[in-house]
């Protein structure tokens, strides 16, 4: 554990809390994509299967459970809890995530896992872990698309996405730190490429986020 990873994890937790708070305070789901959180739930459920097989640390286990429970709670709140449920506009949140996210990532993960470990080293848990790395890298896309459709970004929604992006950026610093200060460290290019791709997806958002903070005005996205 290093300061960058801890800060990243905290940023992630904070972003989830901001979103849950935002849903309860505003009592609506305008500009929020459930599909993004459904993708994250798939990511966590496929990556954290090692909860049953390996114990790393109490911190690690607690955070994994926290991510799964809080993400499920976000989905439940938007899809099933009134009055929020009736404010959720399905037609705006229409990213075809099975065709454009889950299926391609499953194919890519199968190919890279088979190339990496061969038939003899095949492991279903490893395959799902690789799949989750790919899927996480694009899981924010439905949210960014919804944001683009609404144009005007509500304050807490902007903050929630900002802390999501900050979390990914801090993870890159964490890898740089680990590569320099950890003995027996080995690079993992799939993790790096997906991590960088995921962070790049936030760059455009960051630009307008800081611009609106600086001017103190309303946060709107250009067409």
């Amino acid at each position: 554990m290093n300061i960058f990873r801890l800060a990243g994890d905290m940023s992630h937790v904070f972003s989830i809390l901001v979103l849950l708070l935002r849903l309860r305070v505003a009592k609506n789901a305008q500009g929020i994509s459930v599909r993004t959180h459904e993708l994250f739930l798939i990511v966590f459920l496929t990556r954290y299967l090692d909860l049953f097989t390996t114990f790393y640390s109490l911190y690690n286990s607690i955070m994994k459970i926290l991510y799964i429970v809080s993400t499920a709670s976000i989905i439940y709140t938007i899809k099933f809890q009134e009055p929020i449920k009736s404010t959720y506009d399905k037609s705006q949140d229409s990213f075809l995530y099975w065709q454009f996210a889950v299926a391609p990532c499953a194919v890519l993960a199968s190919v890279t896992h088979l190339i990496g470990s061969g038939i003899s080293g095949f492991s279903f848990i490893e395959l799902l872990w690789t799949f989750s790395i790919y899927l996480e890298s694009i899981a924010i896309l439905p949210q960014l698309i919804v944001l683009q459709r609404y144009r005007e970004v509500e304050n807490l929604t902007g903050n929630y996405i900002f802390f999501m992006g900050a979390y990914r950026f801090l993870y890159i610093l964490n890898w740089i730190y680990r590569a320099n200060f950890e003995a027996h460290y080995q690079h993992h290019w799939v993790v790096y490429i997906c991590g960088v791709l995921q962070t790049l997806l936030y760059v455009d958002f960051f630009y307008y986020y800081f611009k609106s903070k600086k001017s103190g005005g309303r946060f709107t996205l250009p067409t």
Binding site: R5, D9, T54, Y56, N60, E126, Y171, Q186, H188
Partner: peptide
């Protein structure tokens, strides 16, 4: 072995 390293991350 290589993968183990990244499994302690979230």
């Amino acid at each position: 072995k290589e993968k183990e390293l990244f499994k302690d991350e979230l």
